[in-house]
Design a protein around this nucleic acid. Structure first.
Length: 493
RNA sequence: CGGGGUGUAGCGUAGCCCGGUAUCGCGCCACAUUUGGGAUGUGGAGGUCGUAGGUUCGAAUCCUGCCACCCCGACCA
């Protein structure tokens, strides 16, 4: 087995899968379609969670927790909703096992059949709205702004680490409002929170937009989304925010007494991001040497690797390293000091590159002698020797981290720009899609039929109608019918 | 669920056509020399050959059933 990673340009899928495994992020579980998130990968997810949670609280939301199981009758109350999820539900039908009479092992006890089956939640709108019915009576109870961190199950046919697994971790916000305007404002606000998180923390540029009817969430009036561009030219839906209208309020009979003494259905939203963001993070920045993490989400931002021959040398370097670690920590920089003598320096260099640690500091006898450090940055793979007599190390590292955060965003931004093409004819559409990929900005006549035809012919779908869509009129790229503006097409994950 | 493929050590594999108790690499363990970009040498441990049955003196190899996984479709955050 070769030590290097497969080349990204040769086999993108293989590269991705190997990277996820080798960087200790996750692996396929023996359980069908499910994923084991390993400690290092999970610590990145925890960083994401922590930051998102702060942003949710800042926008007035509180966390709560609702049941894993949904009675079948709940799920079927909103017609579109059940239709959208029916084909991918795990269902609990029994509540007991017993020993087989022929001694062949444990079997499901046929006498323990549930009267009403329970669905393992594919999303929680239905359980939550059935609860909201009891929580909301008056306009004084509104708005209700709740988020839940949970796992959900969608029985997908084909799975892919982080991007599509049968079970995944996510957060789902579910809010209820007195007016349509307020609910739409909430939907847009949370879309902006997601976009800000993606760009500022994940260093991943996203397009904010609205889904076409075909791609809309089952049960929503409107689905807003953020779409990101991966390094193979495919699009990834990174987060969604839904304006639910009064659909769930009507399905679950959630009404409130207005100030004026009337009785009205409440307006709802729901919004979510999942461990899929991990996949996005990996695919947005990584290279042939492994993961590249934005400093703001790296489990540790700096790793220090001592290089020594003797015990004495090791001690001297450790002493010096401790000073530097204290200085860095005082600046709020997270550091790992790896003085394991079970692995050699070269091995560690490669290992931390694979794991995407933004900055590596090497300290050896030579550095001790000259009062220097070797500092390597992961994103550019460049090394420099800094003299501690001339440089304030904590300031330097701090600036470097910011520069890495900005640098990888900029790189991803340039890439997306390069991979976004305006096309005006069907020939161009096909050609660009086949040879280049990426986002195709094209006119569309606004009908589901046309979108469906394009999907059948090319596998490309409308990723979104950008919020900043220019209102220039034109002709649909397929049908030549009039169009109100360009939308983004792409092949998607 | 349709079409194709694969199951051999922790991982990746050779052997199968043509039957004789399993090959190589990585990893693991021990010792020595090494340590500024995934060290080298020597020795060592590790196997119900997916599973059940059949053919045979003898099966990883031939035959049959079953199971699992992967790839391509349909489905999808």
């Amino acid at each position: 087995m070769s030590k290097g990673l497969p080349k990204r340009s040769e086999d993108y899928s293989l590269w991705y899968n190997e990277l996820v495994k080798r960087a200790d992020l996750a692996e396929n579980s023996a359980v069908r379609g499910c994923m084991v998130i390993k400690p290092y990968g999970y610590s990145i997810w925890e960083k994401m969670q922590a930051q998102l949670d702060i942003m949710f609280k800042e926008t007035g939301h509180s966390n709560a927790y609702f049941p894993l199981f949904i009675p079948k009758s709940y799920l079927s109350k909103e017609a579109n909703h059940v239709q959208g999820f029916a084909k991918e539900c795990a269902v609990v039908t029994h509540y007991r096992l017993k020993n087989a009479e022929d001694g062949s092992g444990i079997i499901v006890d046929p006498d323990a059949k549930l009267e009403e089956e329970l669905i393992v939640r594919p999303t929680s709108e239905t359980v939550i709205w059935s609860t909201y019915k009891n929580w909301i009576q008056s306009y004084r109870d509104l708005p209700l702004l709740v988020n839940q961190w949970a796992n959900v199950v969608r029985w997908e046919m084909r799975t892919r680490l982080f991007l599509r697994t049968s079970e995944f971790l996510w957060q789902e916000g579910h809010t209820a409002h007195a007016t349509k305007t307020e609910a739409i404002a909430e939907t847009v606000q949370m879309l902006n929170v997601y976009a800000q998180f993606a760009e500022e923390y994940m260093a991943m540029p996203v397009v904010k937009g609205v889904k076409s009817e075909n791609e809309r969430f089952a049960g929503a009036e409107d689905t807003y989304c953020i779409e990101a561009m991966m390094q193979d030219g495919k699009a990834l839906q990174a987060g969604t925010s839904h304006f639910l209208g009064q659909n769930f309020a009507k399905a679950f009979d959630v009404k409130f007494a207005t100030k004026e003494g009337g009785l009205e259905y409440v307006w709802g939203t729901s919004w979510g991001v999942s461990t899929r963001l991990m996949g996005a993070l990996i695919m947005a920045h990584s290279d042939d040497n492994g993961l590249v993490l934005p400093p703001k989400l790296a489990p540790f931002q700096v790793v220090i690797i001592p290089i020594y021959r003797s015990e004495t040398e090791s001690e001297n370097i450790s002493n010096k390293a401790r000073e530097i670690i204290l200085k860095l920590k005082a600046k709020g920089i997270s550091v790992k000091y790896d003085d394991r003598d079970t692995q050699k320096p070269g091995w560690k260099f490669a290992e931390y590159e694979l794991k995407g640690v933004p900055i590596r500091i090497a300290m050896g006898p030579r550095d001790l002698e000259n009062n220097t450090l070797e500092i390597a940055r992961r994103d550019t793979l460049t090394k420099e020797t800094v003299n501690l007599n001339k440089t304030v190390v904590e300031d330097h590292i701090s600036e470097l981290l910011q520069s890495i955060q900005d640098g990888i965003y900029q790189k991803a931004f340039e890439f997306r720009k390069k991979m976004t093409t305006e096309v005006d004819t069907w020939e161009e559409f096909i050609d660009v899609l086949e040879t280049k990929g990426g986002f195709l900005s094209a006119h569309w006549d606004g009908t589901s039929e046309t979108e469906e035809k394009i999907k059948d012919k090319t596998k490309a779908t409308i990723r979104c109608i950008p919020l900043d869509q220019s209102q220039d009129s034109g002709k649909c790229v397929l049908t030549n019918q009039p169009s109100k503006g360009r939308v983004l097409f792409a092949k998607a994950y």
